[in-house]
Design a binder for these strands. Structure first.
Lengths: 147, 147
DNA sequence: TTGATAATGATAATTATTATCAATAAGGAA
DNA sequence: TTCCTTATTGATAATAATTATCATTATCAA
């Protein structure tokens, strides 16, 4: 993410913590900064290892606790990777879908999903299920990596 | 799955093992039977625990080894559950999508995906990505559980 | 039926996650 | 600013999940 987007996210998150009476602590800030600055989804271990070159890195337990808190607040969401999940990425506005480059890992957000909504309505009609949630990810090669 | 479908799957899988020079062993059979007979995705631990009421259950290591083999052969695939993955389900014909009941865990296969194909083509046009794979799951309540 | 060897079980090692609890630091009140 | 309450932390133990090791066993082609 760009430095601008990173900082915007961070201030949004800090405000959210204050509003919900969560303290904005050093370890939490460190974790949030790493997530907000990354351009790929990260696992708890990823985040922990990235933090280790800092003066006073957060304990591994705080990494897990911070991720749980951020997810509870709806600020991050799990991203399911083929072959392993428990990676996190900032929550997006509305419902958007993700396109992940299988080579460089870069993640891109897709806008607009009329087709998907139609599809879901059809599925509900046919099956009698009440679809409450869905989950679509596209994998492929970005223009840079397809060369 | 119905007993008929289960047996069809099992004989297909056994044939595949023979053709690829994998031995059809007792532990492998036990794991394959459990997967083929289940109507929900199962984790390695699920499978192991289900096997424990048998006379001579497979070792936990063999469960993992069998799952790896079946996945390598393309006979099963990972299913990503919200809040945890590493569940397995038999590979389906063509590309189909899954609808999972969040209450009873029952899994249903959705046929037809014209809308999704259209969506993907549009995404490719817009982004310049080359989409090689996609991954859609629907979650909701089946008619039985929505009462 | 036999023999080569792929595959197994038991278990140790590794890795990931969660729980515990005394010490610390955030942030509102004075 | 300083103090005080207490939410939060770090260190570490405990638990859970997965992988590696290796002597023994069982599959299956000859």
């Amino acid at each position: 993410m760009s430095a601008l987007e990173t900082n915007l996210l961070l201030s949004t998150w800090k405000t959210a913590l204050h509003q919900q009476d969560y303290r904005v602590t050093q370890p939490r800030l460190q974790v949030m900064e790493i997530i907000a600055a990354s351009n790929t989804p990260l696992t708890p271990q990823d985040i922990y290892h990235r933090s280790l070159d800092q003066e006073t890195p957060p304990g591994i337990a705080s990494v897990y606790r911070t991720l749980e808190m951020l997810e509870d607040l709806g600020l991050i969401q799990q991203i399911h990777q083929p072959g392993g999940c428990h990676s996190y990425w900032p929550t997006l506005e509305g419902h958007q879908h993700l396109l992940i480059c299988t080579d460089c890992g870069h993640l891109r957000v897709i806008e607009g999903n009329e087709e998907i909504s139609e599809y879901i309505s059809k599925v509900e009609e046919i099956t009698g299920y009440q679809v409450t949630e869905h989950w679509l990810q596209l994998f492929g090669l970005c223009s840079g990596c397809s060369n």
